[in-house]
Design a protein around this nucleic acid. Structure first.
Lengths: 196, 196
DNA sequence: CCTACCGATCGGTAGG
DNA sequence: CCTACCGATCGGTAGG
């Protein structure tokens, strides 16, 4: 029993350290020896827990895609909300997530490109599903007349991109600064930077 | 004379092909053999034109930093403009540049991280200069009361990031679509996504 | 600009 | 989980 528990734990530890290193240096610049050293074992010992270096990225990407799509589904399924409420909630989630879980943000937005080619296809399908949800909400907003016209894809990419600096910043934000940054970003994007 | 001219030309060709590959696959995933093949020579022949693989990145980063900072200086030095005019011009430049010269966008926003450590320091100084210009314009706007309050750094990062999807997109935009996307982005950021 | 080659590092395996 | 090790690929050099 203890043995099994330890093994699951070790695997989680490997995934966590790998994700941290992928954020700091990127997948290609992180060697299996780096990951092993971060966990405190020899490189060859990693292979009792994972199949390959790429397998780590596959596991991380799958977990992210599932989680992100799940959050969007949940927001969209909550009754009694306008489209623009939903759009704000989706963006809020991305901002909070980038501050609190920067490693998953980097995997989902940058490092997936290093997936083995057979796996990229599958990931792109998952991401398409996620993007379709975004665009469905944006379409709703346009139809309801609550946001200005524009190609949904362009609006989506601009919104998603606009928070992509957060997970890469080295600056430490206090909770108060995070809240303040979030308000600034949301008001820029929804109410506009220009005063009227 | 012909020989010298050819040599300069070859070097430009190497830099161009390398930049293209860095955009497609990233610096770390591009080997000197890939670059040589793209130019149509053997890997070892590259070294008559460049000192090292990292040297290519140094040359590209330096050129970018100089150009970007120069454009910002020029915009800021043009008389008879409000702060918000300048801010819109700066962002317009970034949008146009991302569409027309995606390789320089990727070098300046992503790949500089692969610079050799002695060179990163110098690059960060150059980029700080560039960011200071951005923030000076943003500060002006806040003082003039033409944009809403917010930490200049947060506003700057959000604006810069918001167009970072452009140079990574594989979709081909026609001139008309580029113009339309640019208008959507500018109106989102300055006038707000929400209708009033 | 090429042929021939090198040391270092990579991801990964065998066997215990 | 470790020791010992391997083939492939990397950036780069010598010499012409």
């Amino acid at each position: 029993m203890t043995e099994v528990k330890t093994k699951v734990f070790r695997k989680a530890e490997i995934l966590e350290q790998a994700a941290r290193l992928f954020l700091e240096r990127g997948f290609k610049s992180t060697s299996v020896r780096d990951i092993a050293a971060a966990v405190g074992i020899e490189a060859s010992s990693l292979y009792s827990h994972i199949k390959s270096k790429e397998d780590i990225l596959v596991l991380l990407c799958d977990a992210c895609a599932e989680r992100y799509t799940g959050v969007l589904s949940k927001i969209m399924a909550t009754p009694g909300q306008t489209g623009i409420d939903q759009l704000k909630q989706i963006l809020s989630f991305h901002i909070d997530n980038a501050f609190q879980d920067p490693t998953s943000s980097t995997v989902f937005s940058d490092e997936w490109k290093n997936l083995p080619s057979e796996r990229i296809e599958k990931f792109l399908i998952d991401r398409k599903e996620y993007e379709n949800k975004w665009q469905a909400v944006i379409q709703d907003c346009i139809r309801q007349g609550s946001i200005r016209e524009g190609e949904p894809a362009v609006i989506m990419h601009t919104l998603i991109s606009s928070v992509r600096w957060i997970h890469h910043t080295k600056r430490k934000f206090t909770d108060k600064e995070q809240k303040s940054a979030k308000e600034t970003i949301l008001s820029m994007l929804f109410d506009g930077l220009a005063k009227r």
